[in-house]
Design a binder for these strands. Sequence first.
DNA 1: GATAGTATAAATGTATACAAAGAACAAATT
DNA 2: AATTTGTTCTTTGTATACATTTATACTATC
Lengths: 230, 230
Amino acid sequence: MAKDDLASIMKEYPYMPLRDVVFHTLRRAIMQGDLKPGERLMEIKLASRLGVSRTPIREAIRMLELEGLVTMVPRKGAQVAEITEKDLKDVLEVRIGLEELAVKFVCQRINQEQLDELRRASRSFEEAVRSEDLTRLAEADVNFHDLIYKATGNERLVQLLNNIREQMYRYRVEYLKDEEIRSSLIREHNQLWQALSERDPEKAARITQEHIERQQEYILENIMGTEKSE
Amino acid sequence: MAKDDLASIMKEYPYMPLRDVVFHTLRRAIMQGDLKPGERLMEIKLASRLGVSRTPIREAIRMLELEGLVTMVPRKGAQVAEITEKDLKDVLEVRIGLEELAVKFVCQRINQEQLDELRRASRSFEEAVRSEDLTRLAEADVNFHDLIYKATGNERLVQLLNNIREQMYRYRVEYLKDEEIRSSLIREHNQLWQALSERDPEKAARITQEHIERQQEYILENIMGTEKSE
DNA sequence: GATAGTATAAATGTATACAAAGAACAAATT
DNA sequence: AATTTGTTCTTTGTATACATTTATACTATC
């Protein structure tokens, strides 16, 4: 990572304050594992690296702090938050609760147009799986879930779910590399669409719960264990 | 509000960075309505008012921004977030979901010691109601719910619930002034304790839901309507 | 050789200085 | 009289300077 990332973001959003550019850049670096848990975020180094002053760096760190992605040690500065197994478990418990709440609302509120759109999103996810393009796959997955979130009609819920999902990014890339996972994802998306179109909240909740629990198991087995040995 | 608030906070936590002191000060001011929705937060004014430089003010604003308490207008700065009826509805929907999730976990995980402590908290709430001391009353209410949150054993859930509850502060003070409300709160706390000690998640969830819905109705009728006329 | 103390370096916390953009107001022209 | 343009003032966005604290390394002494 270098100035390229920052410059490209600034080109896309020319009026975005530097703090937001830095914020997104650092967040992405943490999500992707370029900045590893426990690593210190030293303001001067980051500032010279990104070609800005300390001020926007500091403001970005304040935002990352509130998102829980970095932890502050008094008079020692910021470091990338460690993720313990307990953390992951806690987050996923909350996530299951919120996702179940979401599908409940969706069953009450979704209209035909939104259902159709969701169906199309599910189809392009299938295509993305066949294309073997991991970036496209991740995007299609995000798109599918975004549509569901929007259909809840609750902006606050959408915000919370997006936040949690972003935190899961730290693992998802690895997760989607697994062949078997990908095909089961197709199945689950279809089942979920089915349940939503039948407006059956119990069924949708069950599918959602299984979906997330499967992710949890996979992450615990395949990723959490190996992380510490790096 | 003046330097007094800030100074007293700094006395209690001498090693807290100014940004956090400012953050808590501003947040409280917003919650209590000293800073009204739509009001601009001008850095220089706040800085001179609180006796600090712009830097900690700006960092505090970044945190308030992420909490949704202030909104940023590009090149115009921060202003206190407006709260619409839809916002309130959305937040409370999420809150009901999270609180129900919380009591579910509590029913699974609470131990006898925690139950006893909760009982004591419920008793001091009753005393606080009799004492007619609104500050004490609010504290006792917070304490009661804090104990419940802790018993979930899920730190992330606690964090989210505390955040939402803090946002409700903007209304709670008014809410607790109502005589009838106070006595029904005692009843609800007792019922909730009963349900938790019986480890009956359905019952606990029902009580919780009614509890919050009653708050919602009250707020919508008595506060939201009058706010705009000020 | 080990330990303690001091000095130096580096990082954060805070304040201030500088630049640029936007708003408000006044003056001039149509 | 209205509109437009120019100037000034305010405010944010960014950079840098200063202060304080902590870590580290080196030296001297036991």
